[in-house]
């Protein structure tokens, strides 16, 4: 197989509050022989909050990020659901509105850049599934996670709006019964856990302004997974991860029930199955301890 090569948009948390996500992304890429060119020029995607403030500016900044992937003539991979949403949404809007694209390009020209629309924008989870292939992952597994019940937590912005997902990825995902992460768990030798909250919201985006609502959403998710006998959760989104991993205490208080589960980034789960060491995967950076290794 030709070596896979992508432009990596790390997003902000990978460089700050979820260092383990950056470490495990690179560790898994090395194992799978995937080359990732980091877009060090990229800015924050706005996380849908800049979009609430200044829509046009958010389009210009995201178009700039994509323009750098286009310069490399590579597909952009994201490792955060919200980066994926805001980047793919920018691409969708510019590719379907010539006038808007021209207005954005007028600005980008001031810094010698152009958004053409030639690079795809895809989440690393789907790059692995669509381009690398789960069968090959299965063959490479050296430490199957066969003793674990693993609850997939998909995160809103990878699966909704489903039209945007399906436009950005080769494999369509059913927003009411997504299966990609379940398939990945199975490929890693684990037992996937079915539970009601797997495609629900973690509450991350309103943690500051509506802490109670956010905490109940987090609590419900961990409780749902616990009730179906999960030993751990796994997510492709670092924002969901932050919420589930660091906020279990507030979540427990909000729902009146003590809940807490170790939460892996999907990269860490693959890494464990492929024989990466806990140190390579940054397992010591979790607030809710990963105590089963």
């Amino acid at each position: 197989m030709k070596k896979l090569k992508y432009a990596l948009f790390t997003g902000c948390t990978a460089k700050q509050s979820t260092p383990e996500q950056m470490m495990s992304t690179m560790a898994v890429a090395r194992k799978l022989n995937i080359e990732l060119i980091e877009l060090t020029e990229a800015s924050c995607c706005g996380a849908s909050h800049l979009q609430d403030y200044d829509d046009f500016l958010s389009l210009v900044l995201n178009a700039r990020n994509i323009a750098y992937a286009e310069k490399h003539e590579l597909t952009m991979v994201t490792i955060c659901n919200t980066c994926q949403l805001n980047t793919a949404m920018t691409k969708h809007r510019l590719d379907n509105n010539a006038e808007l694209k021209a207005r954005v390009n007028e600005k980008l020209a001031e810094v010698g850049l152009e958004y053409k629309g030639t690079s795809l924008v895809t989440h690393f989870l789907y790059a692995i599934i669509d381009d690398f292939g789960l069968d090959k992952i299965k063959e490479m597994v050296v430490k199957p996670l066969s003793q674990f019940n693993i609850a997939p937590f998909y995160g809103c912005h990878n699966i909704r709006p489903s039209e945007l997902h399906n436009e950005s990825h080769k494999t369509a995902e059913n927003p009411y019964n997504p299966t990609s992460l379940d398939d990945l768990i199975i490929a890693c030798g684990g037992k996937n856990v079915e539970y009601e909250q797997k495609n629900k919201c973690c509450g991350f985006h309103i943690e500051l302004q509506a802490p109670h609502t956010a905490a109940v959403l987090t609590g419900n998710a961990i409780a749902g997974a616990t009730d179906q006998n999960a030993d751990m959760m796994v997510t492709p989104c670092p924002l969901c991860h932050l919420k589930l991993d660091t906020q279990a205490h507030h979540a427990s208080k909000a729902i009146g029930r003590e809940v807490s589960l170790p939460v892996l980034h999907m990269q860490q789960m693959i890494g464990l199955a492929l024989g990466c060491t806990p140190a390579e995967l940054g397992l010591k950076h979790h607030v809710t301890e990963v105590n089963f290794i």
């Binding site: 948390t13 924050c44 996380a47 800049l50």
Partner: peptide, 23 residues
């Protein structure tokens, strides 16, 4: 001027200062 609106405007200031977000 409250926590919710500052949460949105904060992204603007952070990106202006560093490009990436200062969490």
């Amino acid at each position: 001027n409250n926590v919710a609106t500052r949460h949105a405007v904060g992204f603007f200031h952070s990106i202006k200062k560093r490009g990436v977000l200062d969490e």
